[in-house]
Nucleic acid binder design. Structure first.
Length: 196
DNA sequence: AAAAAGATGGCCT
DNA sequence: GGCCATCTTTTTT
């Protein structure tokens, strides 16, 4: 019996079980998780879920060159260019779905983030999907990478996390879905949640 | 071939 | 709150 092989197989199975689920569940559970890219990052405080059969999702209408990563393995990264200017970072969940990272509370690599963002105010480092990607050095080269890649680190929260829920923002379709999740009371959100 | 539409952010009033 | 820089994908002519 090979103990290391068993351990590796278990880790692989857990990874798959976590990511191969509905994006709204994963998006909610990611709040409070620490995420870093090459040691730079912090606590995830805001996410949005985009489902496979969701008119607001890039995957709606099937696989294209841009959204190919969303149809690849769960637990991989989907990076896209927004408005021709910004990069946005997603984690792929069950086939055709993903979670958009919208805001982080900076924790590691302040100098690096400040340099990349051209600002010194930590509140503005990662409060928005484009800002977050820039602060963490995310670009097209990361598209399709597995979250098991050594450049990424994910550390789940160790205590209860108060999560607030609201309608997704910045979209024009399927605005009725309450698929935006945030850390209650966090000053690092990209925008306040509506009452409710 | 051309044009519109974005999962945005920064700076303006 | 409004404007607009900037460009890829998607839709329309």
């Amino acid at each position: 019996m090979d103990i290391k092989a068993d351990h590796d197989a278990d880790a692989e199975a857990r990874f798959r079980l976590f990511w191969d689920r509905a994006p709204d569940r994963v998006a909610a559970e990611l709040i409070g998780t620490e995420f870093c890219v090459d040691g730079v990052g912090g606590i995830i405080v805001e996410t949005e879920a985009y489902a496979a059969d969701d008119p607001a999702s890039h995957s709606f209408g099937g696989e294209t060159r841009r959204n190919a990563a969303m149809f690849g393995p769960p637990g991989h990264v989907y990076v896209y260019r927004s408005y021709g200017l910004h990069w946005c970072l997603n984690f792929v969940c069950q086939r055709g779905s993903a979670v958009l990272l919208r805001a982080l509370e900076p924790l590691h690599g302040f100098d690096r983030m400040s340099e990349r963002r051209g600002l010194t105010e930590p509140r503005l480092f990662c409060s928005g999907p484009g800002r977050l990607a820039l602060a963490l050095g995310i670009d097209a080269s990361h598209n399709g990478l597995s979250l098991q890649d050594p450049r990424f680190t994910l550390v789940p929260p160790v205590a209860y996390v108060p999560v607030i829920v609201g309608a997704r923002i910045g979209i024009s379709k399927a605005t009725d879905k309450a698929w935006r999740f945030g850390l209650a009371g966090s000053p690092y959100l990209s925008k306040r949640f509506e009452q409710g």
